[in-house]
Design a protein around this nucleic acid. Structure first.
Length: 203
DNA sequence: ATAGGGCTAGGT
DNA sequence: ACCTAGCCCTAT
């Protein structure tokens, strides 16, 4: 499992997993951890600047003790924050923290472009063309597309009753909304056509 | 690999 | 209290 590395990195930090995040704690911060933090939290989320060096620190060079000086773990949602989070309920119980990786406007634009190019449902294709490194799972593209449809007021293809969405936490511009609606309507009508005429070669 | 239901953190 | 939106799980 890929979590092994993260456990190694986090383990020294978690003095008491049940008390996380700690309000004030001394953290040994090797360069590896520093890198990891900036990767996970992003420059605006969890900059190293949010740490303050501990007053009397006689560890000369590579590793110094730092203390947390800001409540960085509470804040607005933003893009690319908190990918992984240790959430101990015992000794070695780590798991992914949910619901913290948000789509940027650029990413949404790429998704729409990709769906337009390859069609709804070709998530692996869209990912490999437009999100080769950034999105972990093609299923996330699908999930985002579903959310976009709902957010843009596109009626669900399946007949399940679903109330129209009221608000968008991260609003989209009108142009993008119209594009999404357009693509959705296109794909709905083509799939309906395929259903109706069974022998048309619509490659 | 994809569709669709379910779960839930975090925002309102 | 309710809702949104990202993530997970399962069936196909």
């Amino acid at each position: 499992m890929e979590a092994a590395e993260e456990v190694q990195i986090w383990a020294p930090i978690l003095a008491d997993p049940l008390d996380w995040p700690p309000s004030s704690v001394t953290i040994p911060l090797p360069s590896q951890v520093e890198e990891y933090f900036s990767y996970v939290y992003g420059t605006d989320g969890m900059g190293i600047s949010k740490f303050a060096p501990e007053p009397d620190d006689d560890l000369g060079g590579t590793m110094s003790n730092l203390i947390v000086k800001e409540k960085w773990w509470r804040g607005l949602r933003g893009p690319r924050k908190r990918r992984i989070f240790p959430w101990g309920t015992g000794s070695m119980n780590f798991h992914r923290r949910k619901n913290n990786e948000h789509w940027t406007h650029e990413e949404v634009k790429k998704l729409v472009k990709g769906v337009k190019a390859y069609g709804v449902g070709r998530w692996t294709m869209v990912k490999s063309r437009y999100f080769s490194a950034s999105v972990p799972d093609p299923a996330h593209l699908k999930d985002k597309w579903r959310n976009l449809l709902r957010a843009c007021g596109v009626p669900c293809a399946s007949q399940r009753k679903e109330k129209a969405q009221k608000t968008m936490f991260r609003p989209l511009d009108t142009e993008l909304i119209q594009q999404i609606q357009g693509v959705a309507i296109d794909s709905a009508s083509t799939s309906k056509m395929k259903k109706h005429r069974g022998k048309g070669t619509t490659s």
